[in-house]
């Protein structure tokens, strides 16, 4: 995960940026790709985005810091976004959030010691019918109970174990 983006992908993005009239429109796309590959966007990721698009790092940083789903600080392998908006709140979202903090042993904004999970509150996930809801990575889960949360975390852990052991 130390590499920001594979060279091949960089070349592809560069080629695309060279073709289009307004490369700025790709800022979010490139940041998302770096994040998907590297987990989060370090300063070097901002610089790389600027380089790919032929623009200045400051133009990228202005965008990267605006959106809350671009991580400019290190996060764990999986980011757990627990919804704290009104529908989830009214259906027990706070208890689920407490449960998550307890089982993971971390507070909001923190990452588990094993580097697997980062817990963040999020606004409404558009899963209000399935409240309370959370999103891990890009997958939405709900309606949640404490038991379901445990199952989901166990499943995510198992998957992570597979990918990491595969890599080693």
């Amino acid at each position: 995960m130390s590499e920001l983006l594979p060279q091949q992908q960089i070349d592809k993005l560069k080629a695309h940026a060279a073709e289009i009239e307004h490369p700025h429109e790709m800022i979010v796309d490139v940041l998302r790709e770096i994040q998907a590959h590297h987990g989060w966007v370090p300063d070097a990721g901002v610089v790389l985005t600027a380089e790919i698009l032929g623009i200045t790092p400051v133009e990228v940083e202005e965008i990267a810091t605006f959106y809350d789903k671009i991580f400019r600080q290190p996060v764990g392998k999986r980011v757990v976004h627990i919804c704290d908006s009104i529908c989830c709140w009214s259906t027990g979202g706070e208890e689920i959030a407490d449960h998550l903090q307890q089982t993971l042993g971390i507070g909001f904004g923190e990452t588990t010691a094993d580097g697997l999970f980062t817990l963040l509150p999020t606004c409404c996930l558009g899963a209000c019918g399935d409240a309370p809801a959370m999103m891990i990575g890009l997958t939405t889960y709900g309606p949640l109970t404490a038991t379901k949360v445990d199952e989901i975390l166990a499943k995510e852990r198992a998957e992570l174990a597979k990918t990491t052991s595969g890599k080693d």
């Binding site: 901002v46 200045t56 790092p57 400051v58 940083e61 202005e62 809350d68």
Partner: peptide
């Protein structure tokens, strides 16, 4: 000037250089 920007959103906004 090209080395100055607006960063952040909501009531956490600041102005300066990338680094």
């Amino acid at each position: 000037g090209t080395d100055f920007g607006t960063f952040g959103s909501r009531n956490r906004i600041c102005f300066g250089r990338f680094q």
